[in-house]
């Protein structure tokens, strides 16, 4: 599903990722971990072409991301859901409008959008907040809305960059549960987190980065 071949990225001469080789199979749930500045966010941003590598190739479902034009990148992003630590919700739009944005881009009709958004909000337990604006919601609720926006079109891949970074333990557990359910429904999930405690407790595979280099991949042990 996702393949990195000798991928390197540098910002103004400073290496953020160096010669990374990585493969993520369809339906996998994989954590990406490492200290702050290890290259986790850079790795995730490469998957949805938020940045492009200085060298190397990235393949998403067999398509070479580095050779795509702007229009092709827009199209491939429709099959990738993205969640950030800071939620990135539009404060002047309702929860319904925020989640509906993904489907509007795909050209869905208003009736279908209403049904699908309601269904997805029920999955994250927030269907009763449909007409609220994000500023009236707690941090945990806002993150669940951001996840709903990423999942509403049943993407093939879900990328979450420190999705629980600002949340308490209760909300952390809630968010991870939603991500697990999405994975069970067939979505390939990649989560960047520096919280090794949680990764260890979840007994999931992880890739560890250090100074832009993959230093550990638990899948290689098998």
């Amino acid at each position: 599903m996702i393949q990195f071949h000798n991928v390197s990225v540098s910002y103004q001469g400073d290496a953020a990722l160096s010669d990374v080789n990585l493969q993520v199979r369809k339906g996998e749930f994989l954590f990406v971990t490492g200290a702050s500045g290890a290259g986790k966010s850079t790795l995730l941003r490469l998957i949805f072409a938020g940045i492009l590598p200085n060298s190397g190739q990235i393949l998403i479902d067999g398509q070479n991301l580095t050779r795509m034009n702007r229009h092709q990148i827009a199209l491939i992003r429709r099959s990738i859901g993205v969640v950030f630590q800071d939620f990135k919700l539009l404060p002047n739009r309702t929860v319904l409008e925020n989640v509906a944005l993904t489907l509007e881009v795909l050209g869905w009709g208003a009736k279908d959008i209403g049904k699908k958004v309601h269904h997805t909000l029920r999955q994250v337990g927030l269907e009763h907040k449909m007409n609220s604006t994000p500023v009236k919601l707690s941090g945990g609720e806002q993150q669940r809305i951001a996840i709903a926006r990423a999942l509403v079109n049943a993407p093939k891949i879900l990328i979450a960059d420190e999705p629980t970074g600002n949340l308490d333990d209760f909300n952390k557990e809630l968010i991870f549960e939603i991500l697990r359910e999405a994975n069970i429904r067939g979505t390939t999930v990649l989560v960047a987190t520096h919280d090794r405690r949680y990764i260890d407790a979840s007994h999931r595979d992880f890739v560890a980065l250090e100074k832009g280099v993959v230093v550990e991949d638990t899948r290689e042990r098998r």
Partner: peptide
């Protein structure tokens, strides 16, 4: 390119006419 298009259009439920798009904008 065709693969990328397929990935994207698979998820489209209803196609709208150009007029529909203009109305949306």
């Amino acid at each position: 390119m065709s693969g990328v298009k397929q990935m994207a259009t698979r998820q489209r439920v209803s196609k709208e006419s150009s007029f529909g798009r203009l109305r949306y904008f």
